[in-house]
Amino acid sequence: MSETFLLDGEDIPFEPGQTVMQAALAAGHYIPHLCYHPEFKPHGSCKVCTVKIAGRYATSCTAPAQAGLDVASDTDEVNELRRTLVQMLFAEGNHFCPSCEKSGNCVLQALGYDLGVMTAGFRHLFPDRPVDASHPDILLDFNRCILCELCVRASCEVDGKCVFALAGRGITKHLIVNAESGRLADTEVELTDKALAVCPVGAILIKRQGFAVPIGERRYDLSPISAQALADAPRPPSGSQPCPSCEDEA
């Protein structure tokens, strides 16, 4: 029998090597998250998955599961922190959901709804970020980048190209592409790259496909992000439909 830890008062079983996030999702408990993706190594940068472990804050996507931990996640205090983090992301970029083609399919927007973000909460910075439309089939809209580095990880680890990277520090940190010209058209990026598919917001877009899916059929029109994260979570094989990630691990 596997060992367990406590999450919001419930016993969560885990396998050695799992993080708190992985064990919680596998057990059917949602912890809000943004830069965590089950197919990539934990990153711990967005801090939205913050939980309180023995009175201290920790990112659940990087905290190793250990027997006897007492983890608080779905509490007013922690959810308020998460809301603030998401509000800061909205205020820091130019996220105009009403005219964004990612609306309804956007992880940031879905997370905002899930956490009950009703206002931006902060003065918008309205950064001036030109769009890179140089590539014939791919649009790079820096206005919506949240610096989650999923594209950076996917491009290096899966695509083997390292097209994307982050440059600068602190408030000046920004996404760049791996070309002397700085233009996406001069990189090796292709439509089939994992880096495109993994972008959680409307920063990396396939051109001329916006608004093709009608309202009511978009990803988060169908069910909230919490339900979908649980459905997508890698779990030990059970029944006849083991998840792909679990098969890889096996």
């Binding site: 009403p98 005219s99 083609e101 769009v131 649009l139 877009l205 496909q209 916006g210 608004f211």
Partner: peptide
Amino acid sequence: QGRPYWEIPVMVQR
């Protein structure tokens, strides 16, 4: 100006 053309019908209706 500068926005991708497929975004315009949704943007301008505002």
